[in-house]
Amino acid sequence: ELVLALYDYQEKSPREVTMKKGDILTLLNSTNKDWWKVEVNDRQGFVPASYVKKLD
């Protein structure tokens, strides 16, 4: 499943990933309501769920 980055996000820990507004990311896990695991540029990590939106 793919998600769209709604905002820029700068990683604050090694478990997170940086994304730019408009990026298309692969959603790996959305079981946590606050932090979703995504893959971007061959890196996996977490981003705030409120910063991304699922693409239909």
Rank of each mutant, 00 (worst) to 15 (best):
P48L: 03
D42A: 11
V17Y: 03
L6F: 03
N41I: 12
L27S: 02
V38C: 05
K54M: 12
S50L: 10
K21M: 08
S30M: 09
K54A: 09
G45A: 03
Y9E: 01
K54F: 12
T26R: 15
V40K: 15
N32A: 09
D56K: 11
L55M: 10
G22H: 05
D56M: 13
I24E: 03
S13T: 12
R15A: 13
E16Y: 05
D42L: 10
K53T: 14
K54C: 10
L6P: 00
K20Q: 10
V38H: 00
G22R: 03
N29V: 08
G22Y: 05
V52T: 04
D42F: 13
G22W: 06
T18S: 15
P48T: 01
Y7D: 08
D34A: 09
K21N: 05
F46C: 12
V47L: 03
S30C: 11
L2M: 11
E11A: 15
A49F: 02
E16P: 04
K20F: 10
V38Q: 00
E39T: 10
V3D: 00
E11M: 12
K53S: 12
E1Y: 12
P48I: 02
K21S: 08
A49I: 03
G45T: 02
N32T: 06
L27V: 07
T31Q: 13
A5E: 01
D56N: 13
N29F: 07
D42H: 13
L28G: 02
Y7Q: 12
N41D: 14
V38Y: 00
N41H: 15
L25G: 14
Y51D: 04
E16I: 04
I24M: 07
E16V: 05
V52Q: 01
L55D: 04
W35I: 03
L6Y: 04
D23W: 11
R43M: 07
L27A: 02
P14R: 09
T26F: 12
K53G: 10
D56P: 14
K33V: 10
V47T: 02
Q10A: 13
K54L: 13
D8A: 06
V47G: 01
F46E: 04
D56Y: 12
L4C: 10
S30P: 07
A49T: 05
T26I: 15
K37P: 01
G45H: 02
D56E: 13
T26E: 09
A5L: 02
Q10C: 12
L2P: 06
K37W: 14
K53I: 15
Y7F: 13
N41Q: 14
E11C: 13
K53Y: 09
Y51F: 13
L28C: 07
D23A: 08
K33W: 08
K53P: 02
I24G: 01
V3N: 01
L28F: 03
D34F: 15
T31E: 14
L25A: 08
W36C: 04
E1D: 11
V3Y: 13
T26W: 14
N32R: 09
Y9L: 00
V47N: 01
P14F: 09
K12C: 12
L2S: 08
I24F: 07
L55G: 04
Q44E: 10
K54Y: 10
K12T: 13
L4Q: 11
N41G: 15
L6S: 03
W36R: 01
N32W: 08
N29R: 06
N32K: 07
E39K: 11
S13V: 05
P14I: 10
T31N: 12
V47F: 00
K20T: 09
L6R: 05
D8K: 02
E39S: 13
W35G: 00
V52N: 01
Y7N: 07
V40M: 15
T18F: 05
L6C: 08
T26N: 10
R15H: 13
Y9D: 00
Q10N: 14
K54S: 08
N32F: 08
V17H: 03
Y9T: 01
I24A: 04
V38W: 00
K37I: 14
Y51R: 08
V17E: 01
E39Y: 07
E1V: 14
L4Y: 11
K33D: 11
D34C: 14
Y9M: 01
Y9V: 01
K37F: 15
D23I: 04
E11I: 06
L27Q: 01
L2I: 09
P48C: 03
P48H: 03
Y7R: 15
K21R: 11
P14C: 11
K54E: 08
L27F: 03
G22D: 06
I24R: 06
I24L: 09
R43I: 07
N41R: 14
P48R: 03
F46M: 08
L25I: 06
K20I: 09
S50V: 09
D34Q: 10
N41M: 13
D23V: 05
N41K: 14
L55W: 07
K33I: 11
Y9K: 00
G22C: 11
K53W: 08
K54W: 08
E11H: 09
K12P: 04
R15L: 14
V17F: 14
S50I: 09
K12E: 08
D8R: 02
P48W: 02
Y9W: 10
K53A: 12
L28T: 05
I24Y: 07
W36Y: 07
Y9F: 07
S50H: 12
G22S: 03
L4V: 15
A5K: 01
Q44D: 07
V52I: 09
Q10G: 08
S13M: 08
A5D: 00
E1A: 13
L25T: 01
R15N: 13
W36I: 05
D8L: 02
V17M: 13
P48Y: 02
D8S: 08
D56S: 13
Q10W: 13
R15P: 06
V52H: 01
L2H: 11
S50W: 10
D8E: 05
R15Y: 12
V52S: 01
D56W: 10
Y7G: 05
I24D: 01
F46Q: 03
V47W: 01
V38F: 00
L4K: 08
K20W: 10
L4S: 05
A49S: 13
N29A: 09
L27D: 01
A49D: 03
E11S: 15
P14V: 11
E39V: 11
A49L: 01
V47A: 04
D56V: 12
K33S: 12
P48M: 03
R43F: 05
A5N: 00
G45E: 01
N32S: 10
S30A: 13
E16M: 05
W36M: 04
D42R: 10
Q44F: 07
V40G: 14
Y51M: 14
W36L: 05
S13Q: 08
T26L: 15
Q10L: 13
L55A: 05
S30W: 09
A5T: 03
K53F: 08
A5F: 01
F46P: 00
K54P: 11
E1C: 15
D23F: 05
K53H: 09
T31I: 09
L28A: 03
I24S: 04
K12M: 11
Q44I: 14
A49C: 07
D23M: 14
D42G: 15
E11Y: 05
A5V: 10
N32H: 11
L6H: 03
Y9S: 01
E1N: 13
L2Y: 14
Q44C: 11
S50A: 14
S30T: 10
N41A: 13
E1G: 13
P14D: 13
V38M: 02
L2D: 04
K21G: 06
V40E: 02
P14Q: 10
V3P: 00
Q10P: 06
L25H: 03
N29P: 03
R15F: 11
T26H: 13
W35Q: 03
W35H: 03
G45S: 02
D34W: 15
K12Y: 06
L2Q: 10
L6V: 07
F46I: 07
K21A: 12
K20S: 09
S50Q: 12
R43W: 05
E11P: 14
L25W: 03
F46A: 02
N32Q: 09
Y51T: 10
V3T: 03
V3G: 14
D23Q: 15
